[in-house]
């Protein structure tokens, strides 16, 4: 997993709420057996028509917007547990997703892959979406160490919550398996006294 500490980037505003993982990556593209290459199919049916032509009304196809931050409506990532959704966002080039609410499994998957979910208040989300739509070059700064989101142009400075353990993992590029493997003795000791039927 790549390390993450700070990011300063313009953003892409996706105003839809309840964006589910079937939209992020439709099931018919889950057939790969590696983690690479899913970016091509990110938001496939919103991005492309049935002939494979880009749909001009979808935000990722609007050349005005660019950047490695996705600002999305409330309850991002609901539905299927497919980690492919996080892989597709990363592979496409996103490093941060900002929303006012994330679905649990998606949030965990994102953190396990070095994609940072930043949860902000509904007000801040609205202000961010408006600011980015008004000026696509608006720069958003994410400082994981300080847990701060900053947009100088519009005077936003917001603290965001993140799990301390997960934060350490992201800052250092560690993953959970390294940690769990180091706990094997404790796990075996637990298993010896664990009763199950």
């Amino acid at each position: 997993m790549e390390k993450f500490s700070k990011l300063l980037s313009s953003a892409i505003p996706l105003i839809q709420e309840n964006v589910d993982t079937d939209q992020i990556i439709p099931a018919r593209f889950l057939k790969a057996t590696s983690r690479e290459g899913f970016g091509e199919h990110l938001f496939k049916d919103w991005r492309f028509d049935e002939h494979g032509e880009p749909k001009s009304n979808f935000i990722l196809n609007d050349p005005v917007y660019s950047g490695s931050i996705l600002v999305a409506g409330e309850n991002f990532g609901c539905g299927s547990s497919r980690e492919h959704a996080a892989w597709a966002l990363l592979d496409y080039g996103f490093k941060v997703v900002i929303s006012s609410y994330f679905a649990d499994i998606f949030k965990g998957n994102a953190l396990n892959n070095g994609l940072l979910p930043v949860q902000v208040s509904s007000n801040t989300l609205r202000e961010l979406l408006e600011a980015v739509q008004l000026d696509p070059m608006t720069l958003i700064e994410i400082d994981l160490e300080a847990q701060l989101l900053r947009v100088n142009e519009i005077g936003i400075l917001e603290h965001f919550e993140t799990n301390l353990y997960k934060k350490t993992c992201l800052l250092n590029g560690y993953d959970d398996i390294d940690f769990l493997l180091s706990q094997k003795e404790k796990i075996s000791a637990f298993e010896r006294k664990h009763i199950e039927f």
Binding site: G108, N109, N112, I177, L180, Q183
Partner: peptide
């Protein structure tokens, strides 16, 4: 339900690190 990284965690350690 869990993601694939967690599938790997459980395969490796029979445990999950969870909130």
């Amino acid at each position: 339900g869990i993601g694939t990284s967690q599938v790997e965690q459980v395969m490796a350690s029979q445990c999950l690190l969870v909130q």
